[in-house]
Amino acid sequence: MKILFTCLILIFPFGLTAQNSQPGSVLTKQKKHTINYIGLKFGALASSFSRNSSIMMPSPGKKSLSAWHAGLAMDLFSKVNYNARVELSYLSKGARETFNNDRISIQSKNRLHYLQLSALPLVLKGGSKKINPYLAFGGYYARRIGINSQSKTPQQNWENDPITTKNLNVRGDYGYSVSAGIYIRKRPVFEIRYEAGLRSVSSSSDIKNRSLILSFSI
């Protein structure tokens, strides 16, 4: 009997609550969820080596190395004027350089293949609902998965350069990035980005990656 009374005492308040709480009696505000962008990113880039820690910006042409990139991108914390983004990409960086002295001229071409993780914690948007320009600031960490070094003289063809390959011996690269682009509604469409490495790709020389990256997203 004590158990029965105890059960009734415990159940009675819940019964009153159920009777008094009709479906329309309590106004609940539904949270509006924002669907974050998840998609593919691809494009082209021009890269070069900085040998004096300058913030030089590569440009397509004979003095820089052209390549392509592709990967996945995802937006986080999407707001009208702000969001963050993470990316995982495959890309090639490196440089095309010419070294001269009194006796000989040597051309060098180094292509470093990376798997790169980029984080843009600060993406500032204009706030327009249709065409929305943005600026983004962040950084990256890249792990080298391959390298191709070649050299030539005016009298020779391109040949593998094992000495330069051995000199460019640092596999990890990290640095900062600055981007400008355009969202159409909630999807990024076009972007141009400057990336500057903070770590030398050689343990014996001060050689850092510099890249100018053009991207399209779908």
Rank of each mutant, 00 (worst) to 15 (best):
N36M: 00
A95H: 01
T98F: 00
K32W: 03
A46F: 07
I192K: 05
S211P: 03
N83F: 01
K63D: 12
S203Y: 02
Q22D: 01
L40N: 10
Y140S: 00
I213S: 01
A196D: 03
S78C: 13
Q156I: 11
V26N: 10
L122R: 00
L45E: 12
I3T: 15
V189M: 15
I145Q: 10
K62C: 01
K32I: 06
E191S: 08
S151A: 08
D75F: 01
E191N: 12
S177F: 09
G127T: 04
T6M: 05
Y140G: 00
I147H: 02
Y37T: 00
S149D: 06
V170I: 05
P13I: 07
G126R: 13
Y82T: 10
I38M: 10
P23I: 03
L168H: 12
G138D: 07
P162R: 06
G24Y: 09
N167W: 15
Q156F: 14
F49E: 09
I9N: 08
G175H: 06
S108F: 14
A119D: 07
N101Q: 03
G15M: 13
L120S: 06
L65F: 13
R144P: 00
S205Q: 15
K208R: 10
S215M: 01
H33G: 01
S54W: 04
P13R: 06
Y176R: 06
E195H: 11
G39V: 02
K32Y: 10
F216K: 11
L117D: 09
A119T: 02
R171M: 15
P13H: 04
M56E: 06
A44D: 05
A18D: 09
S48Q: 10
R111M: 09
T153C: 00
A95E: 09
S21E: 15
I207C: 04
F42S: 14
H69L: 04
L91R: 11
K109F: 12
R51C: 13
L88M: 06
P154Q: 06
Y114R: 05
N209T: 11
G94T: 00
I55T: 13
R185C: 14
T28F: 14
M74Q: 08
K186P: 06
L168N: 10
L168P: 04
V189T: 13
S92H: 15
F14P: 00
G127A: 04
L212G: 00
G172D: 05
R171C: 09
N81C: 08
T98S: 03
S151V: 04
F216Q: 08
G39C: 06
T98V: 05
S105W: 05
P162Q: 08
L124C: 08
P58S: 04
L45C: 10
L45M: 15
R111P: 02
S78E: 12
M57F: 13
P121E: 03
Y37C: 02
S217H: 11
N157F: 12
V80P: 08
G181D: 03
I106W: 07
S50Y: 04
S200E: 07
G139S: 01
W158M: 12
